[in-house]
C-alpha cells in the first residue's frame, strides 16, 4: 500500500509559527457544586453549569443574583469556597486566565490616555507599533479620542474602551459583565456586532445583561441566575418561548423577583 501524507493531528510545524505550544481548547466549561461565601452569606450556592464549545451565552438575573461574582469565579479572580471549575478539562491557572478577557461591570482604566490604555495590553501580549491599536479604537469608535485621558471619557466611552482592551488580548473566551449598560442605541449595535463577529471567529462569549431584547438578539443559550444559583439554563429559543422557572417568568414579566 502507498503511504498517504496525512498531516498529524496537532502538528503545527507548518503553521509558520515555529515551536508553538499546543493550544488546548478551553471549552467546554464544566462547573460543579460551586460555592462562594462572604460575610456569612452563601452568595454563590451549589452552582452547576455546563457551557458548550461555541456560541454566545447570555446570563440574565435580578440585581444581586450573583452574575458578576460568577464571572469573577470563572475568571479566577476570586477563589471559590467549594466546588470545581474546569475549562476544557484544565483547572483555573494563570495560563487559562491569560486566554480569557473580562470586561468589568465598572470599567477599570489606567490613569493614562485612551491609546496608552490599549498600548499597555498590546505590549503585554508582545505586539508592537500602533496599527492594531488604531484598528481597535476605530472598531469601538474612539479613534478621535486616542490622546484624551481615559478617565475623562464618558461612561459609555469607558465601556467601549474596556471592550477594545479585552479584544486586544485576543482571548479565546470573552467574559462580558453588562458591557452595554450605559451605551446609546448606536453603540449598543456596534458592540453587539463586535461580539457577534468575535463569536463567528470562534471566541466563546459569556455575556451578562439586563436587556432581554439583547439576550434574544445575541444569545445562543441563556443562563438565568437567581439567588446564587442557576435557576434555568436553556437554548435561547426555548428559554424565551417557555421559561421553565417561576423566577425567570416573573423576571421577564417585569415583576420583582425576590
Amino acid at each position: 500500500m502507498r503511504d498517504l501524507a496525512v498531516p498529524m493531528v496537532g502538528d503545527r510545524t507548518d503553521a509558520g509559527g515555529g515551536a508553538l505550544t499546543p493550544h488546548l481548547p478551553l471549552m467546554p466549561l464544566r462547573v460543579r457544586g460551586l460555592g462562594y461565601r462572604a460575610g456569612g452569606r452563601a452568595l454563590i450556592d451549589e452552582l452547576d453549569l455546563d457551557l458548550s464549545v461555541s456560541g454566545i451565552t447570555m446570563v440574565l438575573g435580578p440585581n444581586g443574583a450573583g452574575k458578576s461574582l460568577l464571572l469573577r469565579l470563572l475568571h479566577g479572580l476570586i477563589a471559590p469556597t467549594t466546588g470545581t471549575i474546569s475549562w476544557g478539562g484544565l483547572p483555573l491557572s494563570r495560563e487559562v486566565r491569560a486566554r480569557q478577557a473580562l470586561v468589568f461591570q465598572k470599567p477599570v482604566l489606567l490613569r493614562r490616555s485612551v491609546g496608552e490604555n490599549l498600548d499597555f495590553v498590546l505590549r503585554l501580549r508582545g505586539a508592537t507599533g500602533t496599527g492594531r491599536r488604531d484598528q481597535l479604537l476605530e472598531q469601538v469608535g474612539l479613534l478621535h479620542l486616542a490622546k484624551q485621558p481615559a478617565r475623562l471619557l464618558s461612561g459609555g466611552e469607558q465601556q467601549r474602551l474596556s471592550l477594545a482592551r479585552a479584544l486586544a488580548t485576543e482571548p479565546d473566551v470573552l467574559l462580558l459583565d453588562e458591557p452595554t449598560a450605559s451605551l446609546d442605541p448606536a453603540s449598543v449595535q456596534t458592540i453587539e456586532a463586535i461580539v457577534r463577529e468575535a463569536g463567528r471567529r470562534g471566541v466563546r462569549a459569556v455575556f451578562v445583561t439586563h436587556d432581554i431584547g439583547q439576550a434574544r438578539r445575541l444569545g445562543d443559550d441563556v443562563v438565568f441566575m437567581h439567588r446564587g444559583r442557576v435557576a434555568e439554563h436553556a437554548a435561547s429559543k426555548v428559554f424565551f418561548e417557555s421559561p421553565a422557572s417561576e423566577a425567570a417568568r416573573d423576571f421577564m414579566a417585569g415583576r420583582i423577583v425576590l
Partner: peptide, 27 residues
C-alpha cells in the same frame, strides 16, 4: 490605593508582578 484600583485588572490580564509595579509607580 492605586494598586487596589488596578489589582483586579492586572490579575485579569495576567500582568507580571514587576510590570504591574512599574505601571503603578508610573501612573
Amino acid at each position: 490605593d492605586l494598586f487596589g484600583e488596578y489589582d483586579e485588572l492586572f490579575r485579569s490580564l495576567s500582568v507580571p508582578v514587576h510590570q504591574a509595579m512599574a505601571a503603578v509607580l508610573w501612573d
